[in-house]
Design a protein around this nucleic acid. Structure first.
Length: 733
DNA sequence: GACCTGCTGCGGGTTG
């Protein structure tokens, strides 16, 4: 150890010091030093944030273990929550290495863990429990009466990859579960959150301890990651297809062949990750690259990995990454975090990334060995301009979005958490779960625990009462003589099914299978016919039979051209800041150094097209009988603005960066916008009536129109931001 | 044209 005498190292328990000494680490990392005092103090919540591969897990757990050795107790002392089963397995491996030396048991608990270890822990609760939010939910529902015995001496709650929970249903469930744990033990338990990509620290603190940010201490290391090597490669795609003609689904477009050719030449013989924005594209590239390998008579080193592949096929790709052989895995966000893939030489990203945070997360997969640079190649293609190209497409939005995201990444900015969502669906789950856990709850107590002093602080009391009434009418809950809320018949059925434990909703799927192996799943929304040739799991298959009853698609290996499945789904939100940065890039003349020659030429063209249609001066561009409005804002403002226009009887649709309005002239829109400015921010609830499809969360089917509207507008509208945008457009700023 | 995550109890068979 080269640590100075004042090092916090010496505050750790001697047995923990011994363990560290046995590892022969040259010294503790900065983040590991800094985390020791606040965690040992045990009177505050702590956020630990540092670049990837800086040892955040150890930063949290060295002082946590120190405390456990210092003050041994019966019962579970630490709950470690993680977003992925694979991550929990990985943490278990790393932490039990320490725990074994200190006689502190570490128990993994999730759906793939057999009943043996679970029963042993229930019989003899001790040490560290590593668990998913869903499995913790199951413990509350099924073992409500035993929780006190299990958790009475709980000292810490640790959340791994905290960013992956923030702003989504699962995160709200996690917050609620932490609060319910504290209620069971009757005191606050220090919470420790770990992440590399938290945008706004005060909002991250708000997530960790809602309403009590002052309790949260930030431990941040500014130790820079290693060098970053970056290239953005530009490609021209084929001419925009005639919209009247059917798209040919089986022949790859020339730009995809060019990109695949470059991947093939530059990545073979190494170990790399290739990120693509959709599962369909993963399958297309896997097919092209397999064919290239066959053409050149070399072994295929490209394997697909995405969420619709079976566990076995995914494990195969993961195992290949761990072995000491060249392999390139083509994946969606499935390999953004999770399994330790070891050292990969580089990251490729095909198509524009949609968020800064996920790009940073992907980049963290490369250059993990000290001294190795992180390498990322971004491939973006733009359409060939012809008579079908719209002015919006001629701005090459994909290219400029990729540049905007890279620039924001280099500035160190990440998307902050989204505030204001009601999460009514998750509140329903938590109410039902809490009733199951305790046998019944009082309405006023539930209001206090979940909303007034709990994680659902955006709910107003009036709305909460309406929700209880709605749940009563739908027979999810009922009220007993003495005023206790109990489960209704339907509520009972929901809670007793194993799908209850997840907060997020899922779509119906077919299983796709050969006589020997399950390959994965396909959404039932996809039209499938017998004889059809599909690209799946990096190979070609012919459909033999479809069993709609058992929901199974049987396939056999096939030759010939096939098409990649459409998996459906919706794209992620783009943040306002990304769109505003895009506008700055169009207006600037700076040429980013990481662009290749084609990308430089394309950026120059995009800027010329931006000026030529007057967007350097105006927000609205006229085109015969229709206008394109460029608000330079993210998804929420775009949605709100589109609905405002539709509400006024205008034919408005979203076209990438722009909103297209048919049948008007630019001059006619300005007086309308001026009236919107004068009226002030719109009433979003009235606007929600315009929207036809509002169900997206798990229990939305339960809600009355009024509750559904409230839930929808809190999630998909931004009236204030939209009013500011319209004001900006009117003032010409 | 568009991501991802997760889940229990129980019965019946096999193996040590």
């Amino acid at each position: 150890m080269t640590a100075p005498a004042t090092s916090n190292f010496y505050r750790l328990h001697p047995r923990v010091q011994q363990w560290i000494a046995s590892k022969k680490w040259p010294s503790l990392r900065e983040i590991q030093e800094l985390a020791i005092p606040p965690i040992l103090a045990g009177d505050k919540d702590v956020i630990i944030t540092a670049a990837t591969a800086q040892g955040k897990t150890e930063a949290a757990f060295l002082p946590v273990f120190s405390q456990l050795v210092d003050q041994p107790a019966k019962g579970i002392q630490v709950i470690g929550l993680g977003p992925l089963k694979a991550l929990i397995n990985d943490q278990h491996r790393r932490l039990s290495a320490i725990g074994d030396c200190l006689d502190v048991p570490v128990c993994p608990w999730h759906g793939d863990i057999g009943s043996g270890p679970k029963q042993r822990l229930l019989k003899q609760p001790a040490g560290v429990l590593l668990i998913t939010p869903e499995s913790l939910e199951a413990l509350f529902v099924l073992r409500g009466q035993e929780l006190n015995r299990l958790f009475a001496s709980l000292s810490y709650i640790v959340i791994d990859e905290m960013h992956s929970f923030i702003s989504i249903e699962r995160g709200r469930q996690l917050q609620s579960l932490m609060q319910r744990v504290e209620q069971v033990v009757g005191r606050p338990v220090p919470r420790i959150g770990l992440s590399a990509t938290l945008g706004d620290m005060s909002l991250a603190a708000e997530f960790l301890r809602p309403g009590q940010q002052e309790r949260v201490q930030l431990v941040q290391s500014f130790a820079k990651g290693d060098e970053l090597k970056l290239q953005l490669r530009g490609y021209r795609s084929s001419p925009t297809p005639d919209p009247d003609e059917e798209e040919d689904e089986t022949t790859p477009p020339p730009d995809a062949l060019d990109i695949a050719q470059h991947l093939f030449q530059s990545l073979r013989g190494e170990k790399n990750l290739i990120f693509i924005n959709s599962r369909r594209q993963v399958e297309r590239y896997a097919d092209i690259l397999r064919n290239l390998s066959a053409e050149y008579r070399v072994p295929n080193e490209f394997m697909p990995h995405h969420g619709s592949l079976s566990k076995e096929l995914r494990a195969e790709a993961e195992e290949a990454l761990k072995r000491d052989h060249p392999v390139n895995v083509i994946c969606t966000m499935t390999l953004e975090m999770g399994i330790d893939v070891g050292a990969v030489q580089s990251i490729a990203q095909i198509g524009p990334p949609s968020s800064v945070a996920s790009t940073r997360q992907r980049l963290g997969r490369s250059g993990r060995r000290a001294g190795d640079p992180a390498i990322m190649r971004v491939y973006v293609s733009v359409p060939q301009l012809d008579s079908y190209t719209s002015p919006e497409q001629a701005l090459y939005p994909d290219l400029v979005q990729a540049i905007a995201i890279i620039n924001l990444l280099l500035e160190g900015w990440y998307e902050p958490p989204i505030a204001g969502r009601l999460h009514i669906s998750t509140l329903i789950q938590q109410l039902l779960s809490s009733i199951a856990q305790q046998g019944g709850i009082r309405a006023d107590q539930a209001w206090h625990d979940f909303c007034e002093a709990g994680p659902f602080q955006e709910m107003e009391q009036g709305l909460f009462i309406k929700l209880l009434r709605c749940l009563g009418e739908r027979d999810l809950i009922q009220q007993s003589q003495d005023g206790l809320l109990l489960l209704g018949l339907k509520g009972e059925r929901l809670v007793n099914h194993y799908t209850f434990y997840t907060a997020f909703s899922t779509t119906e799927e077919y299983r796709i299978s050969t006589p020997e192996n399950v390959l994965g799943t396909l959404p039932t929304s996809m039209p499938i016919a017998e004889e059809m040739v599909l690209l799946f799991a990096g190979r070609r298959w012919q459909v033999q039979s479809v069993d709609s009853e058992k929901q199974v698609v049987m396939v056999v290996p096939a030759d010939g051209e096939g098409q990649a499945p459409r998996f459906g789904g919706s794209s992620g939100f783009v943040h306002d800041r990304v769109r505003q940065t895009m506008r700055e890039i169009y207006r600037s003349t700076d040429m980013p150094v990481y662009l290749d020659d084609t990308a430089k030429t394309l950026l120059k063209e995009a800027r010329t097209q931006f000026r030529d249609c007057g967007l350097d001066q105006e927000y609205i561009v006229g085109e015969d009988e229709q206008v394109l409005l460029f608000p330079w804002r993210g998804s929420l403002v775009m949605n709100t603005l589109q609905m405002l226009l539709l509400d006024s009887g205008l034919k408005a649709s979203q076209e990438g960066l722009a909103i297209k309005v048919k049948g008007v002239e630019p001059d006619e829109l300005m007086p309308y916008f001026q009236s919107l400015v004068n009226l002030g921010p719109a009433n979003p609830l009235r606007l929600a009536d315009v929207v036809r499809t509002k169900r997206s969360e798990k229990y939305d089917w339960v809600l009355t129109d009024e509750l559904l509207n409230h839930n929808y507008v809190a999630r998909f509208f931004d009236p204030q931001g939209t009013w500011e945008t319209v004001s900006e457009i009117c003032s010409g700023g």
